[in-house]
Write a protein that binds this DNA or RNA. Structure first.
Lengths: 139, 139
DNA sequence: CTAATTGCAAAAGCTTTGCAGCGCA
DNA sequence: TGCGCTGCAAAGCTTTTGCAATTAG
């Protein structure tokens, strides 16, 4: 259970932390900015300070519960850290975020890093364009 | 010549714009934050306002003269837009930025986008880790 | 009970913007 | 000369932080 994960991270199981995690687990959306989380919590009747959300999400990130994504736009977006790695495609028109994985790309990446003596720890691969729903509007 | 490019972009060839472009053309470093450019210009004896540098680099970006890179860190980095596309590896220890290209990855990307009905316009592929010079320090 | 956590508000970065004066064409 | 450009400083955003009050264990 996810609440155990909070404790296992050495964090106290507080109301704010539990509710923030719930937003990620219960919302149909997978990706949330801090603002998103804040609004969602307000709609659920929980007025949690922005500062707390920033702090908690950073703690969750360190604990490996969530992943911070730095798309353009000047603000961070978080997603629940699933066990399966994936990369992202973002629609420049509607903002929808799609996920993709390709083992071949992952392998080539590793190979390139190795060839250069680079110890690969992480990567972010983002494709930007227009999704199926928005293509027509932009030809 | 690069100064023509400024004019071709419909921009007046002013001192600030010419000097900012020079920093990119003459510096051994390929990647510069706005702060970098500002300091470099100061060292060359040109005190150009930060606001101007932000404005000019944005205009250069629109004109296709430079590319804005959004690595993590909360600030943008710019590079001269060469004719050859490439992606980046950044060392988490020393901050050095390396470039790489792989045609196979590019192809697979296209294929994935097509399969999903996604019109691919751009992408950013960033590998993070420790470079050859810094590996030892971090095992 | 005690240390961890939250709320609030202030402050810190990076970036944008308004406006008066300056400079290129 | 006229419009575009720059400088300066103010303001905008996202994110961080200090501190007193609150709460989990």
């Amino acid at each position: 259970m996810s609440k155990d994960a909070i404790r296992e991270a050495g964090l106290k199981l507080t109301k704010p932390r539990a509710m923030i995690l719930e937003v990620f687990e219960q919302s149909p959306e997978k990706h949330h900015s801090v603002e998103d989380v804040h609004k969602e919590l307000l709609e659920r009747g929980h007025d949690i300070g922005l500062g707390t959300i920033y702090r908690v999400l950073t703690q969750f990130e360190v604990a490996g519960l969530v992943k911070r994504l730095n798309f353009e736009g000047g603000y961070a977006v978080f997603e629940l850290k699933s066990n399966s790695h994936h990369d992202h495609m973002v629609c420049l028109e509607c903002g929808r975020i799609y996920e993709f994985v390709d083992s071949e790309i992952e392998e080539i990446q590793e190979r390139i890093a190795n060839e250069r003596g680079f110890r690969l720890l992480d990567h972010s691969h983002l494709m930007q364009g227009y999704c199926w729903y928005c293509r027509e509007k932009n030809q």
